Every structure is written in C-alpha cells, then in structure tokens.
Computed example of a mutant assay.
Amino acid sequence: MAEKRLYNVVVTEERTDRSGEVRKFYHRVGSAFEIDSGGMSVVLPEGIALSGRFAILPRKDRDESDEG
C-alpha cells in the first residue's frame, strides 16, 4: 500500500507587514489526509469554526531544525 500524504488545512489573511508590503499569512486550523476511496478526510479541532475560504496544502517534511 502506498504511503498516504498528509495536508494542512489553512485559512489565509492578507495584511501589511512592517515594510509596508501586503502579504498573505497562513493560519493552520486543521489537518487532512488521503483515504482509500480517493478522497480526503479533514480533521478540525473542537472549537474551530470555518466560513468562507480555506485551503488544503501538502504538509512539508520537517527537518530537525524545525522541531521545537
């Protein structure tokens, strides 16, 4: 069986950074993973309410320097 990929569920926010440039900031609100039927299952923690748009992005592998 192939390894299933993990994804982050994120909402984006556009705001101006300190240099005056408008940037997108991503806020992780949950996780998603592939299921056998070819779809995805999304997990949101209790208390998270979503409306509007959200994105599902591939989760990047962390190296040891990213772990806290």
Rank of each mutant, 00 (worst) to 15 (best):
M1K: 10
M1P: 02
M1S: 10
M1T: 06
E3S: 07
E3H: 10
K4V: 10
K4S: 04
R5C: 05
R5Y: 03
R5V: 08
R5S: 06
L6T: 13
L6M: 14
L6A: 01
Y7G: 03
Y7H: 07
V10I: 09
V10K: 06
V11I: 11
V11N: 07
V11R: 08
T12W: 00
T12H: 04
T12L: 12
E13H: 08
E14I: 12
E14M: 07
E14V: 07
R15Y: 03
R15V: 11
R15H: 03
T16P: 01
T16R: 12
G20W: 08
E21D: 14
E21S: 09
R23V: 14
R23P: 12
K24T: 15
R28M: 08
R28D: 13
S31T: 08
A32N: 01
F33C: 14
I35F: 01
G38T: 04
G39A: 09
M40S: 04
S41M: 14
S41W: 11
V42I: 06
V43R: 15
L44N: 03
P45R: 13
P45T: 09
E46S: 11
I48A: 05
G52Y: 02
G52Q: 07
A55F: 15
I56W: 07
I56E: 12
I56F: 05
L57T: 06
K60V: 04
R62G: 08
E64R: 14
E64G: 14
E64C: 13
S65K: 10
D66P: 02
D66A: 13
E67P: 00
E67Y: 10
E67S: 01
G68M: 12
G68R: 06
